[in-house]
Structure formats: C-alpha cells, structure tokens
C-alpha cells in the first residue's frame, strides 16, 4: 500500500515534470517563432532597415529623408505601415487574385521567421545534419511570394515587372544558394553535425583557404542580395518611371503594407545572415556574451551602409545589362568558391 502511494507520487511528479518541461519548450518555441528572432523582431528590423536606407540615401542625394515621426524620423516607416493598414482603403481590380497574393506573402513571411530558428541567436534552436538544404528552401519562399504578387494581378505593368523579377532571380538565386553552400561546407567541416547552419555560424577560427572561400562567397552574396532585393542598379522589375512601380503598381491599403514589410524584411534577413555566416557574427566575442549583440549590430550597419552606398550612387540598368552583370560577377565568384569548397571537402586542397 505504502509502495503503491509512493510509486504514484513519483509517477505524478515525473509526469508533472515532463509536462512542465514540454510546456516550457513549447513556450520557448512560440516565443522564438513569433517574437524573437522570429516575426516581430524581423518586421521591426526590416522597418528600421528601411528607415536607415531612406535616411542615408536622402543625405547622399542632398535631401533630408524621413524627418517628422520620431527621433530623426525613425518611426516614419512604422507610421506608413499603420496608415496603410488601418486608414487606407484597399482597391481591388478586375481579374485580380487578391487573397492568393496575400496568402503567399504570409507564407513568405512565415518562412523567414522559421529560418531564423536555425541561427544561434534563437532561444529555440533547430539543428540537424544537412539542414542547410531546409534553410535554403525557406529562403526561397519570399522570392516566390514577390514574383506571385505581379502574376496574381491582371495588369500588364505588374506582369512585366514579375517577368523581369523572375528573369533576374534566375541568375541571382543560384549565386545566393552556391555562396551559402560554399560557406557551410567550409565552416561545418569537422563539426559534430555535418552541413548544419548552426555549426557553421558557431565557428570562428578558419584557415587561409577557407577565408578565401568565405571572401568570394561574401562578395557574390552581397551583389546577389542587392539584385534580389531590387535595389539600384538592379531595380528594373519595379522601375517607377517606366512600369509605374512594376510588381507593386496596383497594390494599395493592407496588401501594399504587407508587401512593403516582406520586401524590407527579406533585405534585413539576408543582411543579417551575411553578418552571421560570412562575417563571424559576434566575433571576436561569442554568442553568449552580452556585448556580442553590439558587435553584430555594428557589422550589420556597416554592411547595410555599403549596400545603401551602391544603391545611392548608381543608376538603373536595363534587364540584359543586369543579367550580364550578375552572370559575370556574383555567379562566377560563387561557382568558383563552391568548387574550391568542394575540393577542400574531398581534401584535394588543404
């Protein structure tokens, strides 16, 4: 009898502990997906990135840039989104598939929030062997979403914009994928979990050949990021003067707000991954260090300044010039870095 009650007490204690651990894990998972570093963090980072680009480009072009809302206009992108969401009407055009495009924008945002769980800055970590393939798959969702925005509307401007975007993506996506793969092959070498994003990001000391691979991949990744984010000189898919905004020509109200959010969130995500993967994240500190966040932020701002400087100092180029430029530089460099990384992996190069 005593034994039975003791056993049931132990059993209920362990059941409770198991439940508490699982509830705690579930709360951590939901927090990571929805708050940090998932949805909320990415959206805020994306809008702050938009403010920084607008302000810096404004100053470089002898304009003031955002000024009125918040300190130095820092809350202007947030005010724009709130206005579009809650004040502006959404216009719906004939033959347009509005719900379809919003579903894909939502899935694209979800994919970015999900991809953040693979990075060491997330409280809940997803790490598995060969998870780089899963990570790349999640990265592609925003491209699909942006391409479908134009194709789901019946306007010739949006359709031409989408076709240009898809043509550009045909060359930029392989460059981004090969850069990430090359970096992961080199960085996850000798780690417990092979070809994992987590083991690649948590590694700091690398040899000279690996540094060469990372440098080539970084240059390729940055140029491809500018092209994928449709920043100048690769902004022909949304050319305002020629296509009346291209992909974004017919959007208004909440749908436009979501599109702006996904556009800048994607840029912020790609920039953050560049900092974590190619620039060593918080190096010379580690991820557990409180000052590590400051170093990551500094690297992020430096990289964003470089991208913004290119955007502010170049003019729009035609689609075939853009494709030739992408073929010549990012695609060639990323192919070269992937070949070197593979030769290093099979130990033909040390």
């Amino acid at each position: 009898m005593v034994f039975d009650s003791y056993y049931s007490f132990i059993h209920s204690y362990y059941s409770f502990r198991w439940l508490a651990m699982n509830v705690f894990e579930l709360i951590t998972y939901l927090f990571s997906v929805l708050i940090y570093p998932g949805l909320t963090f990415l959206v805020v980072l994306g809008l702050l990135t938009q403010w920084y680009i607008r302000k810096l480009v404004g100053r470089m072009q002898n304009r003031i840039g955002p000024k009125y809302v918040g300190f130095m206009g820092i809350a202007q992108p947030f005010a724009d989104i709130i206005k579009l969401m809650f004040v502006k009407k959404e216009l719906s055009f004939r033959h347009g598939l509005r719900s379809f495009l919003v579903i894909f924008i939502s899935l694209g945002m979800g994919a970015l929030a999900s991809a953040m769980l693979f990075t060491p800055i997330s409280p809940y970590l997803i790490r598995a062997p060969y998870d780089v393939i899963l990570f790349i798959y999640l990265m592609l969702w925003t491209t699909i979403a942006l391409a479908l925005i134009g194709l789901s509307l019946s306007n010739p401007f949006t359709i031409v914009g989408s076709s240009r975007f898809l043509t550009q993506v045909l060359f930029t996506e392989p460059a981004i994928v090969m850069s990430v793969l090359a970096a992961v092959i080199v960085l996850s070498k000798d780690s417990e979990i092979p070809f994992s994003i987590y083991s690649s990001l948590a590694k700091y000391s690398i040899g000279p050949m690996s540094t060469l691979v990372i440098a080539l991949s970084l240059i390729s990744y940055i140029i491809a990021t500018i092209a994928k984010s449709m920043l100048k000189p690769f902004d022909i898919p949304e050319a305002e003067t020629e296509l009346a905004g291209g992909i974004f020509a017919e959007l208004s109200g909440p749908a436009l707000a979501l599109t702006i959010v996904i556009h800048y969130t994607e840029l912020a995500f790609l920039n953050l991954i560049a900092v974590l993967l190619f620039l060593g994240g918080p190096y010379p500190l580690s991820y557990g260090d409180p000052l590590g966040a400051l170093i990551i932020t500094t690297k992020y701002v430096i990289l964003l300044t470089a991208i913004t400087s290119i955007r502010a100092s170049t003019g729009r180029i035609r689609i075939e010039q853009a494709l030739t430029a992408i073929l010549k530089y990012p695609l060639t460099l990323s192919t070269l870095s992937l070949i070197i990384a593979m030769l290093m992996h099979i130990k033909l190069i040390l």
Partner: peptide, 25 residues
C-alpha cells in the same frame, strides 16, 4: 506565422473597407 499574418490582414481589411471591380490601371 503565416496564419497569424493572414488573420491580421483579414481583420484589418474587413474593418477598413475596400472598393472592388475596378479596371486595371
């Protein structure tokens, strides 16, 4: 995440009102 964003969109769109059936711009 996608479901939450879509639900937010639906609630905002229904409260803001919309014009439908316009000719392409």
């Amino acid at each position: 995440t996608a479901l939450i964003i879509y639900l937010i969109y639906l609630s905002v769109r229904s409260s803001g009102g919309s014009e439908t059936g316009l000719e392409p711009y």
